[in-house]
Simulated scan of single mutants.
Amino acid sequence: MKTIKKLLWQMMGHVSIDQAALHAKGPTVLHISDTPRSFYPELKRLLDILKPNVIIHTGDLADDLKLENRPSLLDSYEKAVIKLMRIVNQSAAETVVFTLGNHDNFKVVSKHAGRAEVYQDAVIKSFHGNEILCAHYHDAAFDAAASKMPDFALYGHDLSLKSLQSYKAKNLNGIEAMHLIDLSTGAVFVIKYPIGTDNERLNRKRLRL
């Protein structure tokens, strides 16, 4: 019965959160990336439940619009950015960081950022003694980290470099899944995106891919 309820919950567009993640000691970081607009309501729910201390988004804020390929969608993109910024800025997070992707517009995001920090390129941030590298592209992330290996490297864009946790660093691809990082222990909790998120990212329904 629990399995059926879980499946129905997921089919409704919700995600399941591991009990261990719910009881993370903290402080915590929630890493997301390449988010389609359909995901925004579920993000708000997650933020209300998890209450991360830091939110890091590694680019392509409205990934279903593909702004780089379709600049005529700028107005729709701006409306999406306003919604997303309202969600993160109303959360309990102390810090919100965006590193923009190829389908983002720096001017639009900066205009509506509120208290969020917005970066066009890779950036290394320090939170509670942990060095966290944030970038949209994994190669940009590791170029930025060349002189100093961070504790975590967060990125998105594509799946050419999947997540890898090694003794040197924890490299986390935000397209594969969301990540809740417990900065007190270094533990990483994987939270799968809602069913259909990849289809939304790739516009499969509309383009019939």
Results as ranks from 00 to 15, higher is better:
Arg45Ile: 06
Leu46Thr: 07
Leu47Pro: 12
Asp48His: 09
Asp48Trp: 01
Leu50Cys: 10
Leu50Val: 13
Asn53Pro: 00
Val54Glu: 01
Val54Met: 05
Ile55Trp: 02
Ile55Ala: 07
Gly59Thr: 06
Gly59Asp: 09
Asp60Trp: 09
Leu61Thr: 15
Leu67Thr: 14
Glu68His: 14
Glu68Tyr: 14
Arg70Ala: 09
Ser72Leu: 00
Ser72His: 07
Leu73Met: 12
Leu74Met: 11
Leu74Ala: 11
Asp75Gly: 05
Asp75Lys: 13
Tyr77Cys: 06
Glu78Pro: 05
Lys79Phe: 04
Val81Thr: 02
Lys83Pro: 00
Leu84Trp: 14
Met85Phe: 03
Met85Asn: 08
Met85Asp: 01
Arg86Met: 00
Arg86Lys: 10
Val88Tyr: 03
Gln90Met: 07
Gln90Ser: 14
Ser91Gly: 05
Ala92Gln: 10
Glu94Ile: 02
Glu94Leu: 01
Glu94Thr: 13
Val96Pro: 01
Phe98Met: 08
Leu100Trp: 07
Leu100Val: 06
Gly101Phe: 06
Asp104Leu: 06
Asp104Asn: 04
Asn105Gln: 06
Asn105Glu: 13
Phe106Asn: 14
Phe106Arg: 14
Lys111Leu: 12
Lys111Asn: 14
Gly114Pro: 02
Arg115Lys: 15
Ala116Pro: 06
Val118Thr: 01
Val118His: 01
Asp121Ile: 04
Ala122Cys: 14
